[in-house]
Amino acid sequence: MNHGKIKQILLLTDGCSNQGEDPAAVAAFAKEKGITVNVVGVLDHGSARDHGLQEVESIAASGGGVSQIVNVNQLARTVQMVTKQSMTHTLHGVVQNELSQILGSGQEVDDLPPDKRGEVIDVVDELGETVNLDVLILVDMSASMKPKLPMVQDALTDLSISLHSRTGENHFALFVFPGKRKETEKVLDWTPEMNSLTGVFQRMTTGGITPTGPALQAALQHFDKRLSKRSLKRYGEDEFPIEESGF
């Protein structure tokens, strides 16, 4: 939550990682670094489902994020809901912290009388509208995901529409795994626009292995790189402390 910016990793997978470290461990580390990990599980019916389900839930739980399992035709709606809900959770947490500093620990928003609670939620709503957001999207390209990729592309375009309707700034990056030569491949570096997605997934070849853990690791490193690049430039150019966001 440094500099009034929300950082999220959004993982789209059908679960069942089979290479590298435990993705849940990487997610737990991400959480410690202030990056929330949300997972949308696009699962098929069948025996692999249970295992996939477990993995999806445990990654999001460790990463302090939201998880949701969907059929592929509900993907667009879900991706946007998960992202926004996770944002609200983060902001709620921030406001909650501020509150307990003012009111003493143990005091929660829910303990307030309904009138006061309404004012707090107004603040959360306002922040959700104006806060800047970085989302790194991580798409599982293992063979079983292949038929779902057109829908994934639709869902990401939809996400971009939703987030651009806010007042706050958004930046997206897109990674896929496994990549052509490496475990993880960068498809799109930080950009405010996701319109450039068209055709990206058609060119991709899907692979057999699913290195979810290493992919999350790469995503984390990419966030770090962005931070250090930033600090080399002028410090905090388009970033501002959340306390000053105008209300």
């Binding site: 609200t88 709620h92 928003v109 829910d110 309904p114 609670r117 309404g118 939620i121 959360v124 709503d125």
Partner: peptide, 10 residues
Amino acid sequence: DKMSLTSEVN
């Protein structure tokens, strides 16, 4: 959910 209901009340 406490939050979204409060939004609606607002």
